[in-house]
Structures are given as structure tokens and as C-alpha cells.
Design a binder for these strands. Structure first.
Length: 484
RNA sequence: GGCGGCAUAGCCAAGUGGCUAAGGCAGCGGUCUGCAAAACCGUUAUUCUCCGGUUCAAAUCCGGAUGCCGCCUCCA
């Protein structure tokens, strides 16, 4: 099966061929470490985590690089406000970032370079650009001469003249308003490094060119990031990298869509953001992942509590099936007769990984892939619901194995089903200020009433709990509960 | 102002020329159940924002309108 990837530059789905047989290099723009991450960052992280997992599941040896910007105006501002060093600020928020990512089940990249570790590479890159007359020093700064790079605008689909007409002048040091800083002379109290142009620090765009080249080479397979980075950040990266090397730098550009809140982009500047950790207090990390993966990575997603709750219900459906599967395979279904349903289910399960992989190969269509998953859920439930145990232990085991295998690619279903469902109940109960022990006490009372066939009493307790949002489910020998 | 994207059921969301327009959530009817819930079965868009056009054939391609969003300043 051939993998197709939508390339931002060509605006088409293209068949993906790694540069080197069996190996894939992927670079994703990470965060500027000056604050905790919000759900927008979570989307980018989860999307590229799943992309990387899928590439690996295809047998490729993936080198995944995601950087940290650890020197930047915002970091400097914050350090100043908090009367501490930029190193401390960056260190702190890198740690917070790593904590959030771990909680989200995002696998660590192969390399997580920090900008300040590649200053010599950046200085060399600037030197090459100046030598090629693509950059010019000016009073301790160095600027990229955008007009001298012929391909400028090829990623974002803009042309220089149009941009020039709308550009505003933000510095009189630049020859053209579109030129951007490769190196900034350090001002009083700012961090600096020695360079041929004096003490200063690197421009933001330069960092990614230097780091991607250092870890992945002049030309590499995939470069990713949020769609807000297309212009100017990624356009400038192309100008820098390709200007310096004369080679194509990135073969496939991949950009994820935004997380929105009430139809507006979630962002720091709008102030309409939710931090990852706040959301994870209210929802299981897999619910957040599932929510994000239910839409295609290039579409915008609208973030809301009700949307998360819908995702939560969907996850409960799958985990309930997985739990039933476990209960069943440990129980009397083990030596079942091989009925028609059994064969049907087995066939569907055999083809599920293929259908899943095909969806993923079609530009990482997780939404469709998840649809296939639910088809299988219904079938497995149907097989288990038949009166007689018509599903053989082999099929049950296969079902479990298949779901866990697919879960490895999506980063879902990693929990023990029973544990997941219990933690969901407990979390939801806590949100509503309900005590689990009290609920279970009432359920025990009701169970006693039911045994005595005191139905009125039993229903009274059930209604009382239902008013609080606690829904009961009577099993053969126990009553479980969930929250609406 | 320049450039670009999106519009599919009550809500979310796949599908980008031709089989019955996936799937989830919510709802309704049934099976099951002491009654429920869950699960299962059935059902919920003769139609894909609107108006034209191309085609034997369009949600899918083209033109126009309307609405929403993004980038052009830092931003995943």
C-alpha cells in the first residue's frame, strides 16, 4: 500500500517515497518555551505523534526531530518580569511541556534539540548566506535579502510584489520591509553569543533551518507544524536552507489545522485557550486524543466541553466492548461452537487492520480509520450478544489483539479496560461533587432491596441516583454504574 | 486591501465524478430486562449553503452569490 501525503507546497496529495530506502526523517516545529502548552499545541503534538507512529508501523526507521526555541523575545520578557534568567524560564517550560506530552501519551521524539545548542551551525549558515549575497549585515544585525531568493513565496503561494504593496515598515535598517532578521544585535540585558557581526542572538526562523539540517541533513522527507507557521516561518526556512545549500530542503510539507473555540482560533493572544493540564484534570488523556483524531488533521476542530463529552462517550463505548471481550474470554465463551457469526466476525477482524492502514495511508485519515473501528465494535458486540456463545476464544483473542495493535498507532486503548472505565466514573463523579463511596453504598442498598424483590424501594434509589447523573446497569451478579 | 481555506442530518464528522452519502453523539420504535440501563435490530440527509454551467452521470469539476474562518505581526 502506498502512502499518500498532502503536500502544502503542491496543494496535492502525493505518493510518499522516502529519500532513503527504509528511512524517514521528519522535523516538526516545537514550542517556544515561555509558557505552558494549550490544546492547540496538543493537537500538533498528537497529530505528528500519530503520523510518526503510523510511519513506524509501516516498517520505516523514523528519525523524528522536534525542537525547542529557548531564546526569544517572549522568553526574555518573561525572565525580566520574573527577575530570573532566560535559561531558568526555558528550562522550566521545557519540563512542563515534557510533562504534558507524557501525560498525553505522546512518544518522545528521537531528538529534541534546543536552539541554543546549535549557535555555531547558525552562524555558519549566516556566513554562507552572506557569501552568496542572500544576506547582509547592518549595524550588528544580519538580514535576509528576500528579493534575492527566486523561490520566495513558493510554499505559501504569495508573490513578492503583492506582499511589498501591503507591507509595513517596521525597521529602517532593512533594505526591504520583507527582509527578516537572521541575527539580532543584543541589546542591554539580553543574552548574547559572539559572532563575526558582533554580540547577538539568532533570529527565530534561522533556528529551525540550522537544527533540521544538523539532525536530518540538507534534504529530508517531512517537515511539519501548525498551519500558522506556513508564512512567514516556513517560507523563510526554505529561503535560508535552500539559499545556503542550493538543494531542496523539504520534500513534503505537512501542516495541521487549528483548534478553535467558538469558531475562533485558540491562541495565547486571543486569550481563549485551555491549557492541556486543565483539560486533563477533567478528561482522560485518551479522550482528548480521541477527540483530536476524530477529525482529519488538516480540518479545523471546534473545542468545547460538549464536544469532549461526546468523545468521552465514544471512548466509553470502545472500552466497554474491550471489557466485555475480556470478561467473555475468561468466561464460558471459551470453547464455543464455530457458528456463522463466528466466521463472519473473524473475517471482519482479519480485514480491519488492512482497512485501518488504508485509511491512514490516505493522508493520515484518522477520522475514517476510527469509523472502521466502530464498525468492528458493533460486530463484536453483536457476536457477543447472541444467546449462545457463538464466538470462539480464538476470535475473541483476535479482536482484542487487533484493537490493541491499532491502538498502538493511535495512542489509544492503552489502559486496562476495567481501570479506564473506573477512572472515568471516578473523574466524572468528582466533577459533580459526588462521593464514590456514597454512590456504591446506595447501590449496595438497592441490590439488597432487589434481592428481596422490593422493586419500589430499588427504583426509588435508582431514580435518586439518576437525578445526580448516575446511571445504573444491572448485570447477572453485580450492578455497575456510569455517569451520563 | 492581498492571498488561501471551509460550508454534508438536531450536533460532530468521513466521503472529492457513477455501487444503498461511513462513523460517533443525541432522538425514536423494537428485542432483552421485575422495570430500566448497556448491548443488539430497525429508524432519523430522495440529498450535500444558494444560483447557474460542464457531463450520459456531480456533494464531488467550472463560474457566481452568501456565510464563516485563517495567513499577511508573535503564534501549533
Amino acid at each position: 500500500m502506498a502512502l499518500k501525503i498532502f503536500n502544502t507546497q503542491s496543494k496535492k496529495k502525493e505518493e510518499f517515497q522516502p529519500l532513503q530506502e527504509g528511512k524517514v526523517g521528519i522535523y516538526v516545529c516545537g514550542i517556544t518555551a515561555y509558557d505552558v502548552c494549550h490544546v492547540g499545541h496538543a493537537r500538533s503534538a498528537v497529530v505528528f505523534d500519530v503520523i510518526t507512529r503510523h510511519l513506524r508501523s509501516k516498517g520505516w526507521d523514523v528519525t523524528y526531530v522536534k525542537n525547542f526555541t529557548d531564546v526569544d523575545d517572549k522568553i526574555i520578557d518573561r525572565a525580566r518580569r520574573e527577575k530570573t534568567g532566560i535559561g531558568e524560564i526555558a528550562e522550566r517550560f521545557i519540563r512542563e511541556h515534557d510533562r504534558d506530552m507524557a501525560a498525553l501519551g505522546v512518544l518522545p521524539p528521537t531528538f529534541s534539540p534546543r536552539a541554543t545548542e546549535s549557535i555555531p551551525e547558525m552562524i555558519r549558515l549566516i556566513g554562507d548566506l552572506i557569501a552568496k549575497d542572500l544576506a547582509y549585515p547592518m549595524d550588528g544585525d544580519v538580514y535576509y535579502a528576500v528579493g534575492r531568493f527566486p523561490g520566495y513565496g513558493k510554499l505559501s503561494g504569495r508573490n513578492l510584489d503583492e506582499m511589498l504593496s501591503g507591507a509595513r515598515i517596521d525597521s529602517d535598517k532593512k533594505r526591504s520591509p520583507l527582509d527578516f532578521a537572521l541575527w539580532k544585535a543584543s541589546k542591554e540585558g539580553e543574552p548574547w553569543w559572539e559572532s563575526p557581526w558582533g554580540r547577538g542572538r539568532p533570529g527565530w526562523h534561522l533556528e529551525c533551518s540550522a537544527m533540521s539540517r544538523r539532525y536530518l541533513g540538507d534534504t529530508f522527507d517531512i517537515h511539519g507544524g501548525g498551519e500558522d507557521l506556513i508564512f512567514p516561518h516556513h517560507e523563510n526556512e526554505i529561503a535560508q536552507s535552500e539559499g545556503a545549500t542550493g538543494k531542496i530542503s523539504v520534500r513534503y510539507w505537512v501542516h495541521n489545522g487549528f483548534v478553535r473555540v467558538n469558531s475562533e482560533k485558540m491562541s495565547k493572544s486571543l486569550g481563549n485557550f485551555f491549557t492541556i493540564r486543565d483539560i486533563l484534570q477533567q478528561y482522560h488523556p485518551e479522550v482528548l486524543r480521541f477527540f483530536l483524531l476524530q477529525s482529519h488533521y488538516r480540518s479545523p476542530v471546534d473545542f468545547s466541553d460538549s464536544a469532549l463529552n461526546e468523545a468521552r462517550q465514544g471512548m466509553n463505548r470502545i472500552y466497554s466492548m474491550l471489557k466485555a471481550l475480556k470478561d467473555e474470554s475468561g468466561g464460558n465463551g471459551a470453547e464455543a461452537v464455530s457458528a456463522e457469526r463466528d466466521k463472519e466476525t473473524a473475517v471482519q477482524l482479519e480485514t480491519l487492520p488492512k482497512r485501518f492502514a488504508e485509511s491512514m495511508d490516505d493522508d493520515f485519515n484518522t477520522a475514517r480509520a476510527i469509523g472502521h473501528l466502530f464498525d468492528a465494535v458493533r460486530m463484536i458486540n453483536a457476536a457477543m450478544a447472541e444467546k449462545k456463545p457463538v464466538v470462539s476464544s480464538g476470535v475473541l483473542l483476535q479482536a482484542e489483539k487487533t484493537f490493541l495493535g491499532i491502538g498502538d498507532v493511535l495512542g489509544l486503548f492503552q489502559q486496562e479496560p476495567d481501570h479506564y472505565l473506573r477512572s472515568d466514573r471516578e473523574r466524572e463523579a468528582a466533577k459533580r461533587g459526588l462521593a464514590v463511596a456514597e454512590i456504591e453504598q446506595r447501590i449496595a442498598e438497592r441490590l439488597a432491596a432487589r434481592k428481596a424483590k422490593a422493586w419500589a424501594r430499588a427504583d426509588e434509589i435508582r431514580n435518586e441516583l439518576a437525578e445526580k447523573g448516575v446511571l445504573l446497569r444491572d448485570g447477572p451478579d453485580a450492578t455497575t454504574w456510569t455517569i451520563a
